[in-house]
């Protein structure tokens, strides 16, 4: 199968102004992420991984350089097209789950489909089957505060999948979960990655994530330190598991 780049960044730089002092958070990042890949962006806090994540997700614009999602330069998009891109092409998962508190699990999953223009009944059926896929078929009508952290994250995964996106961006998806629940979520993500052929990009410092990643991009001080393939990772995983 030929490798098709779903995300491509060229010379990506981002500078924030801290008062009057420029802070170079990203100093030129070139990456290519292929369709169906499971990528982990690893790095210590302050390394710029969240900023990189925001750029890829179209949540923030680069100071210099380009981001292509599905061969579309996102800097060229207007607000409407950007919203459309977020709605249809990208699914977001957050560390803090970020479900809409006033809506039930089912309605949360339906929301992106409704924004996307789907009929109510169709959206409801799809949301139901997605929630069943993530193992929450019994909790359709619960509000977020009635669900545990792991369950909320499952709803978030179902919601991210709602419009069959090409990419799922997960920012520290296991950051607020205990070890066991975190593992379950990682495996659920991997399962979705395989079954639905969606590319998954996670920004994380959870070493459990190494286990399922196709490639790991290590970021340090706003630059790519190294990119490791799965084969090279095998040895490391053993070490990591020994540490736990």
């Amino acid at each position: 199968m030929p490798k098709e780049a779903i995300v491509r960044t060229i010379g990506l730089k981002k500078t924030f102004l801290l008062g009057k002092i420029p802070l170079h958070v990203l100093k030129g990042i070139d990456i290519e992420i292929y369709r169906g890949e499971y990528i982990s962006i690893m790095g210590p806090s302050g390394s710029g991984k969240t900023t990189l994540f925001n750029m890829i997700g179209g949540l923030d614009k680069p100071t210099e350089g380009k981001v292509y999602i599905d061969e579309v330069d996102i800097a060229q998009l207007d607000a409407y097209e950007l919203a459309w891109l977020r709605c249809r092409k990208i699914g977001y998962i957050f560390q803090t789950f970020n479900l809409i508190p006033v809506m039930t699990a089912l309605e949360n999953v339906m929301l992106p489909m409704i924004f996307g223009g789907m009929e109510n009944d169709e959206a409801m059926n799809k949301a139901k089957s997605l929630l069943e896929t993530v193992g929450l078929g019994e909790r359709l009508h619960h509000k977020p505060f009635e669900l545990s952290g792991g369950q909320q994250q499952r709803v978030a995964i179902a919601r991210a999948l709602a419009n069959d996106p090409a990419i799922i961006l997960a920012d520290e998806p296991t950051g607020n979960l205990d070890l066991k629940t975190g593992k379950e979520i990682i495996h659920l993500l991997k399962e979705m990655n395989k079954n639905k052929e969606v590319s998954i990009i996670t920004a994380t410092h959870d070493l459990k994530m190494l286990d399922v990643s196709d490639r790991v991009i290590w970021i340090r001080d706003g630059m790519i330190e190294r990119i490791e393939d799965r084969e090279n990772l095998q040895i490391k995983v053993g070490e990591v598991e020994g540490e736990e």
Partner: peptide, 16 residues
């Protein structure tokens, strides 16, 4: 704020 940000990530336009 967070809820609004989330809705935007899901594809909500400013006018919604």
């Amino acid at each position: 704020a967070r809820e609004i940000g989330t809705m935007k990530c899901l594809g909500a336009l400013d006018k919604y």
